[in-house]
Design a protein around this nucleic acid. Sequence first.
DNA 1: AACGTTCTCGACAACGATTGCAAGCTGTTC
DNA 2: GAACAGCTTGCAATCGTTGTCGAGAACGTT
Lengths: 350, 350
Amino acid sequence: MLDEPRFDDADLHERVTIGDVAERAGVSIATVSRVVNSRYGVAPATFEKVKAVIDDLGYESSLIARSLRSQRTHVIGVLVADIEPFSAEVLKGAANALRGGDYELVVYSGGHGGDHVGWERRYVSRLSGTLTDGTVLVTPTVAEVSLNQPVVAVDPQSSESAFPTFASQNYEGALTATRHLIELGHRRIGFLGGRRDLESARLREQGYRDALHEAGIEFDAELVLEGGFKEATAAGPARQLLALADRPSAVFAANDLSAIQTMRTAQELGLRVPDDLSVIGFDNVPESALTHPPLTTVDQSIQALGFEAVRTLIALIEQPALRREPPSHVSMPTKLVVRQSTAAPRAATA
Amino acid sequence: MLDEPRFDDADLHERVTIGDVAERAGVSIATVSRVVNSRYGVAPATFEKVKAVIDDLGYESSLIARSLRSQRTHVIGVLVADIEPFSAEVLKGAANALRGGDYELVVYSGGHGGDHVGWERRYVSRLSGTLTDGTVLVTPTVAEVSLNQPVVAVDPQSSESAFPTFASQNYEGALTATRHLIELGHRRIGFLGGRRDLESARLREQGYRDALHEAGIEFDAELVLEGGFKEATAAGPARQLLALADRPSAVFAANDLSAIQTMRTAQELGLRVPDDLSVIGFDNVPESALTHPPLTTVDQSIQALGFEAVRTLIALIEQPALRREPPSHVSMPTKLVVRQSTAAPRAATA
DNA sequence: AACGTTCTCGACAACGATTGCAAGCTGTTC
DNA sequence: GAACAGCTTGCAATCGTTGTCGAGAACGTT
């Protein structure tokens, strides 16, 4: 015991292990383990005695050691690229799904530095099978991961995926959003797209195109730019869109963050929303109700996506037989929320 | 191998362990371990051979097993009660501090169900010393935790804490905010406080009181209510404040979320901000720039708090000798950000 | 009093990695 | 050609738990 330098006894006590409890209670570690997990086969007197020592010493079993031994950890992991409004909503929904159950949540947030794909792979494969019982991927950059535990994805790359996916009816929502603008009288409508690797982004663009088509409006490639789903990445394209000689009278941004950035850019350019420019978003994140003017957007119940994803994941964990079945691909309805960022164009039809 | 029912070979392969790699490469597990950790003493030829097998099999070492054996995990944990704007900002700052370093971040989010104190204790004690090398507590509900690894706190219960703490100059900021209202001509100023167990909330109230005092305005207990720092919990008190017979002409809300809720409530009651009611917040979360009208608030660099907390934590982890020194209590400057939710009262001085 | 059950509890082998130590192999030097 | 040094590699202990198995105690039955 004296062979190690002990810097750390300043105020860090050594961790209390099951062995300490056993020694102090005068029983074997096996018995302590049984008490901790309240298993049968321990005499009431022993049980009480051990329990007292546990309380006394403040012992908590090590999650690590426990999960190394018995594969179940009762922890589910959520992998997000970044903490932004969308993922924050998913997390809230996920947390709600856990209420009352006996699972806990850990969130791995990447976002620090470079290579997303590598990062995801590494995380999933390092943690799966050991720390977590299952994983929820949020807007993943990988389509497939090979691993030994259940996985589900929210807002996936593709709903053809091998694991269950949860998304909104992105196509229908985009159709509705674009139709809303068309009904207001807009004919020159810009589209600020999202990350093309996500199915949601592709479907929203398709909805936009089809709505134009059915209204007999010719598609103009100049009006479609990729905004990357984040404020920082949307700024440039938004500016570019609004700087066009023949400026659109309305912009459909593929998510709220892009829409908010579009409004900000418009205001910087001296354009008034919605008088000079209508803007519509997608997501209905809480922030969208706070903008000036409040943003018209397509509501998708993001929390519900997180909620359902976790529910399904837990079912998959607890009923291994389910894993043999083909994965479900849930698509939740969307709803147009008309606020004040959209209006009829100033001069109807250019 | 045939004694277990194998539901799971549908598409879940067994985890690849170090043993599998060793067997396939025809070396011992010790050698594989050395290759994985790129230690000295492995012949170049062997190194390459093993590396090829690792790539081939897609092996990643188990974080769990690794950390059980060698105490260092290179993972730092962040414990948050909830994912809300404040904690989300802290997380971003924390993630930034990790950029380029060789640490990773896991976030434990509680918030699902009941007993916060118990939850924090359990988490910290179960994870400490095993999964994480250190922990950042964000707005903790416990003042002290006894454990065997470094801990720092952001927005703590008390800056007398035994571990390092990171907060803004809450008192000074609150003083400035209240003075701003007084300078505009307000004399009847409401205060919508925060969670009293947090030092930040107490200091902000003290700043409010002292600013009134120095201006010779008598303190009126009726104008001070506790709003709990969240939108849901602030709604009732905000309504109560604005329903007073002798309604305040301005409200200082102890954080932005409460301020936003106050504005919302005011608008529901038909009051215009800032004409009928001035509102000032605290935090300067991103959302505060989006409100209608944009919120005047006290800026604290929340990301910087997260950033510095992580920096300090890492130093503590890597230099155990530092742990003997008394903990530092960092207090970061604040800045008034005047936007459009504050103005002179309609009829100056009642 | 002898025997069979049931109950309680401890020994011990995993789980998947890291690491100190010693053994094997080469190659050098006298 | 023997002794030794230096590399490379494997053996085995260890981390804190859980789960299996069997030993012994306690009790009831005849």
